[in-house]
């Protein structure tokens, strides 16, 4: 039986209200509630949003994130967070996260799901073809430059240090010089 306000008034009109009202009137003592994060695995991390560098604890159980909150041992944020930092749980539990590679063909109006192997192989092929077709060993003055201006890359301040280092190393090995990222804008 649905007891909305109206329903209840009707219900009580039947003088059965006593069964509802007739038990202990004192404030109830709470039963001890279990803590959702008890026995969860704790992993420290640093917030991915701004550059204050706040510490977070990610609670996980069974390989899934169950809670995220500020790291009380972190000397900068001391357990606190801003609204963005407090939201990182939703970077995991998020149906908009893309979880498979996608491809958009020339002239197509949609994405299609593709395998990693196919996508990476296609990209490697494009890199080589474009690089070979546009590689400049010497510039118009005859100086050795060994580069291509026809492939460019932007990003990213969202990468880890090790990844930034690897990415610039990789791009430069291909001869790219149009390498830029958030720091310029």
């Amino acid at each position: 039986m649905q007891l909305n306000r109206r329903g209840f008034l009707k219900f009580s009109g039947g003088a059965v209200a006593g069964s509802v009202l007739g038990i202990g009137l004192k404030a109830a003592e709470a039963e001890a509630q279990p803590l959702a994060i008890q026995y969860a695995r704790e992993t420290t991390t640093i917030c991915p949003y701004c550059a204050v560098g706040c510490g977070l604890i990610v609670h996980s159980r069974g390989g899934e994130v169950i809670n995220t909150e500020g790291d009380p041992d972190h000397p900068i944020n001391r357990g606190t967070l801003c609204s963005k930092g407090a939201s990182i749980y939703q970077l995991r539990h998020n149906d908009k996260r893309v979880t498979e590679p996608m491809y958009r063909a020339k002239g197509s109006n949609q994405w299609q799901k593709v395998s990693w192997d196919w996508a990476l192989e296609q990209i490697a092929e494009r890199i080589k073809t474009t690089r070979d077709a546009t590689f400049m060993e010497k510039n118009s003055k005859g100086q050795v430059v060994n580069r291509t201006d026809a492939i460019a890359s932007v990003g990213s301040a969202a990468l880890d240090n090790e990844e930034c280092y690897l990415l610039q190393k990789l791009l430069r090995s291909w001869g790219l010089v149009y390498i830029e990222h958030q720091a310029r804008i």
Binding site: G13, A15, V16, A17, G18, S19, V20, L21, G22
Partner: peptide, 15 residues
Amino acid sequence: VKPLGILGFWGAVGV
């Protein structure tokens, strides 16, 4: 009203 509700009798009036 509420304490009297224990008696049931007053319940409906209380409500």
